[in-house]
Nucleic acid binder design. Structure first.
Lengths: 140, 140
DNA sequence: TCTAATCCCATTGACGCCCATAGTGCCCCA
DNA sequence: TGGGGCACTATGGGCGTCAATGGGATTAGA
């Protein structure tokens, strides 16, 4: 699902994904820069709390917990949905993803990803190739 | 079983295959672009959730798990059945399969495949040839 | 004051929902 | 046993609704 960014820098979040958060009564999304991919992991505000909960259960003095906490708040940001279900694409989003004029949305029921269309397509092909190769090896 | 795509881009899902999902109370199909074939693997939404469940139980840091998850969502999509048991053939389906005016359905009890008719015929022949060859070798 | 964000409204094209018709196989009954 | 009618599938098309997009107007913020 690919949508265009308009002259004001807005893009419609596909209805199917809006439902994820709007049904929960929220008007905000939370976007997190993916660690390994030039993409954004996006979900409702509970995406943040879910990670935070996870952190609480760990040793607060462990380095990984520190890193994770830092990562969550430094590499994440809120996106406000306007009345028409659009968000404005900030530099925060563009830098990490390479997004300029169009955005590709892909994902599941609880959260989704935002990509620069070409990057998305490239990654899709890479993943297909890797899985096909793995399966070929396992067949022998 | 081959059906025609109408002017609005719709095609009837053969009744026998509809039963697979409708009997489960669903009105949606889940289509996944096959890794090795120019075809779509189609089944009920539980096809996706089944895979997802499987992934949750595996090591979430393994690259393969990431790949699988991405593949399932990037190369998979939902197809809504209308009241008459038809789906609209999107570009998402056409690109991978070469489908343009007609669709060939083939499959088993739990899920089925969608093909461009000529591609299906070609694949059928190669499979026949491969099996015949294998049998010929084993006979010696 | 100038820029940027937010709200509101208009357009258009796609999709969902509805009904109509033709073709086909099946069953039942005369 | 042959014919009529019922049931269902595949297909075509009308129409209303909603999503995606564009743009004006108003407000907030620097």
């Amino acid at each position: 699902m690919t949508n265009r960014i308009d002259a004001k820098g807005r893009v419609s979040v596909p209805a199917q994904f809006r439902l994820i958060v709007q049904s929960a009564g929220h008007t905000e999304l939370y976007a997190l820069r993916s660690l390994h991919l030039p993409a954004l992991d996006v979900g409702g505000p509970e995406l943040l709390t879910r990670f935070d909960k996870k952190l609480e259960s760990e040793d607060p003095f462990a380095e990984t917990a520190d890193d994770m906490s830092f990562y969550l708040h430094a590499d994440g940001g809120f996106l406000k949905l306007d009345a028409d279900g659009r968000i404005t694409v900030t530099d925060f989003l563009r830098e990490h993803t390479g997004i300029s004029t169009d955005v590709t949305f892909a994902g599941a029921n609880t959260h989704f990803q935002m990509w620069q269309p070409d990057q998305f397509e490239a990654h899709r092909k890479t993943v297909r190739a890797r899985l096909a190769e793995k399966r070929r090896l396992e067949a022998n």
